[in-house]
């Protein structure tokens, strides 16, 4: 019985092997090939694609991506804390309503949200008209780094909120009262008690947000236009426009390694922090 029911997970295991592990292995393989007009998978064996990744053009994209994702993560974490805290310390009914209100943007397609920003910040949109009334002449607020950051923050925020909520939930209200009783102002309580005690949620939320932001395609593609280029845009263009699959593959693997190193480092750091 035990042995047989244990096998119930095999279908999904096979699915993951065939359509997650094998395709990534394929990526690794293509990333080590030369681009070729005769064979779509590329030919030969080379490290040239990885060399290209660390050259000017691609390297700039990596730096820009890391920078924008880091800024978006930082802003996202700052904005998410008050909301997550209010959710956790609300009465059950308010908590349910607030949870639903965060859940909807979490699950809504990023396309719809970007559509909204496109109307708000784009040509002839309300934001532009308001600035024009103030005497500031702009055609559009899109196609700038700040507009991309706005999009990334809004995209990543609900993920951050839902990472913080369980961590904040574990903090007993009595501990906050104890801090106040010992003379801590509300902000001191936040800095000295709530922040350190929710560090695990902050770390996992930040990783999630960074991962989402650094691999985002739709936000930079629509809100950044030609002014901003992030990794996912370049991968998309290499695959579907330039048909330079080896370059796209090498770039993908580079992104994957970057994120893995980051996650590994964060896990080690948090393990050391909780290892008491």
């Amino acid at each position: 019985m035990r042995a047989r029911t244990g096998l119930l997970f095999v279908p999904y295991l096979l699915l993951l092997l065939a359509f997650l592990v094998v395709p990534i292995a394929g990526l690794v393989e293509i990333s080590a090939r030369n681009q070729s007009v005769t064979s779509i998978g590329g030919v030969g064996l080379t490290m040239a694609n990885y060399q290209r990744v660390f050259e000017g053009f691609y390297l700039d994209i990596i730096f820009d991506t890391v920078r924008l994702a880091a800024i978006a993560t930082l802003i996202g974490a700052t904005l998410a804390y008050p909301l997550a805290y209010v959710i956790v310390r609300s009465q059950p009914l308010a908590r349910t309503v607030l949870t639903c209100l965060v859940m909807v943007p979490l699950m809504t397609s990023v396309v719809v949200k970007v559509f909204g920003w496109f109307i708000l910040l784009g040509r002839g949109g309300p934001a532009v008209r308001m600035l024009q009334k103030l005497g500031i002449e702009v055609q559009t607020l899109l196609n700038t780094e700040p507009s991309v950051v706005v999009g990334l923050v809004e995209f990543a925020l609900p993920f951050m909120v839902f990472s913080l909520v369980p961590a904040l939930d574990r903090i007993s209200p009595a501990v906050e009262e104890a801090a106040a009783n010992l003379g801590a102002t509300p902000f001191q309580t936040f800095r000295l008690v709530i922040l350190p005690l929710s560090a695990s949620g902050l770390t996992s939320g930040a990783l999630l947000c960074f991962g989402i932001s650094s691999s985002a395609y739709v936000v930079p593609a629509i809100m950044g236009g030609h002014a901003v280029r992030m990794i996912a845009q370049q991968i998309y263009d290499d695959v579907l426009v330039a048909f330079d699959w080896p370059a796209a593959a090498a770039f993908s693997i580079a992104l994957l390694v970057l994120l893995s190193v980051l996650i590994f480092a964060a896990l080690r750091a948090s393990r050391r922090a909780t290892d008491v």
Binding site: S172, E177, A179, A180, N181, V193
Partner: peptide, 17 residues
């Protein structure tokens, strides 16, 4: 509360973990 000079021992102790 943080301005009152009143010591409080909580039922759950409420130590900072």
């Amino acid at each position: 509360p943080h301005r009152r000079r009143v010591g409080l021992v909580f039922q759950s102790f409420a130590l900072f973990p």
